[in-house]
């Protein structure tokens, strides 16, 4: 079932007199419970597309369809609400809040999303990402893999409809990368999320249900 769609997304950046079109009419659909991997060479526009899909920047034209609404036409106030309640984010660096314990990172996300009912799931999510024994640890005492697993737990604790993951394994070794990807795939299926993953690592594509290749701002293969 398609839950999220990008229609004819274009993005142009102005640099002095020069206009550069980095996205040239991209169409993309995300399905519930499936991981869609977006891959391509550096500068192909994959990260720009992910940030536009995640409503972190606006497209020059095109539509972002989600739950019957075109998110591209919403104001920042409403987009913030959508991001808090319906989206989950995993970044290349874990970007955990340095003064919160692992458990508190999840509590914070529950509060931000306003889905207080999800608080009861904190223990089970931490168990699933293998961080039960680290729930009272601060990010500074976690390993790279643990930080990324904590970031995944934080991203899914409020049961978002769409999960955006931008190069989540870029700073990890191959063993930990596999662990993280397995976890991501497992969470996507079990929580019924639509996951959009940006990666340049070919080995990670094996974890995706759909692979979309981009080149020079266009989708070249899916």
């Amino acid at each position: 079932m398609i839950t999220f769609q990008l229609k004819d997304i274009r993005k142009t950046f102005q640099s002095g007199d020069i206009e550069e079109e980095v996205l040239k009419g991209v169409n993309l659909s995300l399905e519930k419970g499936r991981v869609t991997a977006l891959t391509g060479t550096s500068g192909s526009g994959k990260s720009t597309l992910l940030t536009i899909a995640a409503c972190l920047q606006t497209p020059s034209s095109g539509r972002i369809l989600f739950q019957g609404e075109n998110l591209a036409s919403l104001r920042e106030k409403n987009l913030r609400k959508v991001r808090a309640e319906e989206f989950g984010f995993i970044f290349q660096s874990s970007h955990l809040v340095p003064f919160l314990t692992v458990e508190e990172q999840l509590e914070m996300m529950v509060e931000v999303s306003g889905k207080q009912g999800c608080k009861k799931d904190i223990d089970s999510i931490l168990r699933r990402v293998g961080l039960s024994h680290r729930q009272n640890s601060y990010p500074s005492s976690l390993s790279g893999g643990e930080k990324q697993r904590a970031a995944i737990a934080r991203a899914v604790i409020h049961r978002p409809a769409v999960l955006f993951a931008d190069e989540p394994t870029a700073s990890l070794d191959s063993k930990k990368s596999m662990e993280v990807m397995t976890l991501l795939q497992d969470m996507t299926t079990s929580l019924g999320m639509s996951t959009l993953l940006v990666t340049h690592e070919e080995e990670m594509l094996a974890f995706a249900d759909q692979v979309v290749r981009m080149e020079d701002g266009r989708v070249t293969d899916r």
Binding site: F87, F89, S113
Partner: peptide
């Protein structure tokens, strides 16, 4: 600044 940006991204007001 970085942390505030991330918090805004995930939905902080």
């Amino acid at each position: 600044t970085g942390m505030f940006g991330i918090l805004k991204a995930i939905g902080f007001h």
